[in-house]
Design a protein around this nucleic acid. Structure first.
Lengths: 227, 227
DNA sequence: AAAAAAGTAAGGATGATCCTTACTTTTTTC
DNA sequence: GAAAAAAGTAAGGATCATCCTTACTTTTTT
């Protein structure tokens, strides 16, 4: 049996986590001697995006990306989260399998990531033990997708709550959170003030917010990890 | 030389993290054969508090707690975060060393944790590699406190800038940054609106800000690490 | 005790948000 | 491909929040 080498990119801003992932891959290699992993890591959007660009230019394939969603944004403010990064990976490296790994476990967020990234794996960090990580790797290599407990539960109970936020919604929340005024938003987004107001009202409905001011909206959006 | 046994409680809602901490302690034991650790873990406020109560009732000492700040709250809503938990540990087990470990690198928050808990160690998860964890354990056992890179940076900034901004200034900036309105601030701070406005004008002068809106003030305050 | 700094109170000018209504454009669905 | 639904635009006025000024009081400093 011939050897198979997989390239893996691990993106997470916590070294202890990237290390745990690396160990899991190495351990898997030991169990399956014909499989070898070539692993690189990145801790923020900028260095991750740089690696992605390199892969897309070079001959070398990138088989698997482990992608944390909550990441420090890129310096130019273009890539605001792992989700934005995932969108670019899907475009630039369409054959690469994305494994989302995040600590968020509410439906809004999970749905939105599913819809936007369609990942081959979805791990909630609260669920994942070292042992489960090995199983996840095995499933992803042989019979994707792999979703961890909480994700499966959430998918099952997706009845009424399948609203999601798109790029523009997220950008609105982000800009508001850094203090941008409504009157300035049309210069930043391809929308009129009235259009942005409409979206804001919808967001408040989605999050079940009665109060008319934005503080609570931003608070909940932060809590849910949108910003 | 006689053996020394330390009890350790690790509180974190991510199994991969608690596992990394455990590995570090075990590795440290191997390096220092006279030292043995007895380790227990908890993943949420309820189970952690239960363990703390047990320790405080029993004869057994608890030497070290690793405490994540962002934790799922207790079911009765009494303990909302690791910070609340830490306050109780300080009361119930005054001799236990608390090592705060959090992903929070918000300067205001770090400051408030310091003031409230006065921990013997302060780790920012973004900083910590497995190797540094070993060093941290060593320092905490032999010559506490141990503060990781980011923490030290934040503390330095605070010291060199402290003569300019006091607690109230920082609180004003913090509240504004989460979207609190001026008209609501007098309910949160012991100051009138006019007083807060005066301080805000002074802050803008200090930071050399011409523009009259708050966005730039908050941006610079974040850049300088005040919030 | 005097001077300086910080805070309070009130009113008005200005600016920003929010809501409504009516209309247009885009997207979905059958 | 026509009809229906959803999303966006434009303009107005009502409401709310901020910001600035002035005059006054309290606290702190020296």
């Amino acid at each position: 049996m011939e050897n198979k080498e997989y390239s893996v990119l691990i993106i997470d801003d916590h070294p202890l986590i990237t290390d745990a992932y690396k160990s899991a891959f190495n351990y898997y290699s030991k169990l399956n001697e014909s499989i070898v992993f070539s692993i690189v890591t990145a801790q923020d959007c900028d260095s991750a995006f740089k690696l992605i660009k390199e892969f897309s230019k070079s001959e070398k394939n990138l088989e698997i990306v482990f992608l944390d969603i909550k990441l420090p944004p890129s310096i130019d403010g273009e890539i605001l989260s792992g989700e934005d990064l995932g969108l670019r990976i899907n475009k630039m490296l369409p054959d690469t399998k994305i494994i989302v790994s995040t600590t968020f476990n509410d439906n809004y967020r999970v749905h939105s990531i599913f819809k936007n990234l369609n990942p081959d794996g979805f791990l909630i960090k609260n669920d994942i033990t070292p042992k489960e990580l090995i199983e996840a790797i095995d499933t992803i290599l042989n019979d994707p997708p792999y979703y961890s407990k909480t994700v499966i539960k959430l998918l099952r109970k997706q009845v009424s709550n399948d609203f999601l936020l798109d790029n523009i919604d997220r950008k609105i929340l982000y800009e508001l959170s850094i203090g941008t005024k409504m009157k300035d938003l049309p210069n930043i987004l391809p929308l009129s003030i009235a259009g942005i107001e409409k979206r804001k009202r919808q967001l408040k409905q989605i999050f079940n917010i009665i109060s008319s001011d934005d503080k609570e909206l931003l608070h909940i959006a932060k809590e849910k990890g949108f910003i």
